[in-house]
Amino acid sequence: MPTVTMTVNGKQVSGEVEPRTLLVEFLREGLGLTGTHVGCDTSQCGCCVVHVDGRSVKACTMLAVQAEGAEVTTIEGLAADGSLHPLQQAFHENHGLQCGFCTPGMIMSSLELLQRNPDPSEAEVREWLEGNLCRCTGYHNIVKSVLAAAAAMRGAARAAE
């Protein structure tokens, strides 16, 4: 079996995997990072979204061997030094989650949006989340959370200047 080596949440990890092992399987079963979920088998629900080299991808539609040498960030790696990321904080404050199953993917997907576009409109948030399904919230409070996080991150960026 090939060995795959990558950096996950800042730590270098490696493991033997069958080539057919999906990245999400390697994260969940190989590394015990069960915050990345599997909600469908047609690459549409987005419960498995992680970042690979700074871009959001569906970890169910990528082989672990394709992430050789990559920097991978999962939901477990988002809170730096124990303090919540503004997106996590905003999802909490705005009731942006109910059952929590889609939440890691929603947050990881939204993270790339805010990296690309620090000040998205409501419509831009809704369009960006095309690849993430939620069955609980009707998206209302998810959209609100992403907009609130964007505002908080802009505020923090201004304060840092």
């Binding site: 979920h37 477990e76 909490h92 009731h95 939440t103 890691p104």
Partner: peptide, 21 residues
């Protein structure tokens, strides 16, 4: 009141059946 159950879900520490091995 913002929910007390949120913390484990937003940090990826929820424990669903498939997370149990």
């Amino acid at each position: 009141v913002p929910r007390k159950e949120d913390h484990r879900f937003i940090t990826g520490r929820g424990r669903y059946t498939d997370d149990i091995n």
